[in-house]
Nucleic acid binder design. Structure first.
Lengths: 158, 158
DNA sequence: AAAATACGTCAGTCATGTTGACTTATTTCA
DNA sequence: TGAAATAAGTCAACATGACTGACGTATTTT
């Protein structure tokens, strides 16, 4: 009865997802490269910008990488004055992370590129596509992580 | 006048795309790991499976990596009997690539995981979402590459 | 005072990407 | 037919960003 059961191969979407994501992340790469940064720096900068005052351990949870991996890129971002650290007011063991002015400005340039690509795509599509796309991407996330991601993405930074 | 101009930040979609893609590629990782393979092997195996008899140089064009990068993973896949090579009938310099039975079977297990995730997501969405999502992902690809990708994804392997 | 926590760091490894140069086999073309 | 171009493989060296495991230090909790 069902034309598509849950195992039907979706090579089209699998491949589109692959190519779309590659080009989506490709835009910032150019700018990052000029500063000697990579995608790892982009991710850290982005999530610090979006979650000002985030704790290192929470950042690790979001990125799902190890402390050692984070350490290297974070150090560079701090050394190059894109991110600054402040001891927590309540718990001074914490080193709360913030983007500096320089970091915030660079971050804006990066997300502008990605937003442009997204907005350009959406603008060529029927009304309401926006919401469909958001829903799809949300449902592609592991069920356990969805609520956490929902919490994250609804923060407003601007 | 425009509520959203083309520069409006789209943090929601940027982040959703990031998390969605991570989990999407995370499924196969488990299986790949058991065989000592990584994502690079997955990509090679996938595109060889989807393009039987593909030339090495065309595979390089699709993956946009260097010959040296490909060489390593391809060698492993050939050594482990997931991919086989045959000299081209017309041009014997070519080493046309095919998945072996073992490779085809493993490839099916991998894409089944990813298809399940996709189908599960789509099944929770309004009718026609399928097409909207395909369109969105397609429009996220660099304009120059779209026709080439369109050609690729319309191949039927099954 | 002891245990737990937040964070940083040292040392080593691995996967996957890069560049540049070179070889071999084969095909194309002047 | 002989030279040039092409398809593919390979060597060496290197960069990035992951990983593991262990250990140190400051601070908070119990």
């Amino acid at each position: 009865m069902n034309k598509k059961d849950s195992d039907s191969p979706r090579f089209d979407l699998i491949e589109l997802f692959f190519f779309a994501y590659r080009d989506f992340t490709g835009d910032p790469d150019v700018l990052l490269d000029e500063l000697g940064f990579g995608r790892a720096h982009h991710r850290v900068l982005h999530f610090v910008h979006r979650n000002p005052g985030i704790r290192v351990s929470d950042l690790l949870d979001i990125l799902k990488i190890t402390k050692q991996s984070l350490g290297r890129v974070l150090k560079q971002l701090v050394d190059d004055d894109f991110i600054c650290q402040e001891p927590g007011a309540l718990d001074r063991r914490q080193r709360l992370l913030y983007t500096t002015e320089k970091g915030t400005e660079f971050c804006a340039r990066l997300s502008k590129l990605q937003s442009q690509r997204i907005n350009k795509a959406i603008s060529m599509m029927p009304d309401g596509s926006d919401e469909i796309v958001r829903q799809f991407l949300y449902l592609m996330i592991d069920e356990n992580d969805r609520s956490e991601v929902a919490r994250l993405i609804t923060k407003q930074t601007d």
